[in-house]
Design a protein around this nucleic acid. Structure first.
Length: 232
DNA sequence: ACATTAATTATGT
DNA sequence: ACATAATTAATGT
């Protein structure tokens, strides 16, 4: 691990678009790569934000635990995204826990490089604003959904978000390309795993989705879109 | 309209 | 065999 990172790992990724080759080289020379097994925490809620990260491969999610022990999934992180960027929000500690969902490869930088990177590499800075902006937009949508939509609409919205973010085309439809349980979906849509189970069963009978353990394939996305709307 | 409780079954190591 | 996931029905708010 560590030193021998190839530029090709990273050249196509948003944070590095518009950067010169030698700039990418400089950035990569400061990074260390880490492998994490599913179930591991890359960092934990409340601990000092000493590093920021780029997910190269696998899947990570940001989640928080409420005082009563309930978990809430705040954000899904697909490959190519930066995470643990607490400094971008002026925070000294990570606001959430980063849980590895599928075995992952990440690049990590010491947080002391955050300001220098932002100042020196405008592509990096632009992407950070874009990432933060996109997440804010996403959160706005979710607040609206939680406040106004019925459960079936929230579940379909959550599932559609995953399709757009982490969908992989298969012969039959679009599969969520990381392991996902009913419990997970319930934590994303503010309901219970039972309701998610019942809902998915109904959708499966209707031919909208197809699912196995920890795996969901959407066969007819357009019907989900209809279900995610208040009228349908 | 949805959560909770509980019992039952399926699936992966 | 054991733990984790998923289903299903009954009951509660």
């Amino acid at each position: 691990m560590g030193k021998l990172l190839d530029e090709s790992l990273v050249t196509g990724l948003p944070p590095f678009l518009g950067l010169q080759r030698d700039q990418i080289r400089l950035i990569l020379d400061e990074a260390v790569s880490q492998r994490h097994d599913a179930g591991a925490n890359v960092f934990s809620e409340g601990s000092p934000a000493t590093q920021f990260f780029l997910l190269l491969d696998g899947h990570v999610r940001a989640q928080r635990t409420t005082p009563n022990g309930d978990q809430v999934i705040l954000h899904q992180i697909p490959p190519g995204e930066m995470f643990g960027i607490a400094r971008a929000m002026g925070l000294e500690a990570y606001p959430a826990t980063a849980v590895v969902v599928a075995e992952s490869i990440v690049l990590a930088w010491p947080m002391r490089l955050w300001e220098p990177f932002m100042a020196r590499f405008d592509g990096f800075a632009r992407n950070t604003f874009r990432t933060v902006g996109a997440r804010m937009h996403d959160k706005n949508d979710r607040i609206m959904e939680m406040a106004t939509l019925a459960v079936e609409q929230r579940i379909s919205s959550a599932l559609l978000r995953l399709v757009n973010q982490s969908g992989r085309k298969t012969p039959q439809g679009i599969e969520i390309d990381f392991p996902i349980t009913r419990q997970d979906l319930s934590e994303m849509s503010g309901t219970t795993l039972h309701t998610v189970s019942r809902t998915l069963s109904a959708w499966e009978k209707a031919g909208i989705v197809q699912s196995e353990r920890k795996k969901i394939t959407v066969l007819q996305p357009h019907r989900l879109v209809v279900l995610s709307q208040p009228q349908g």
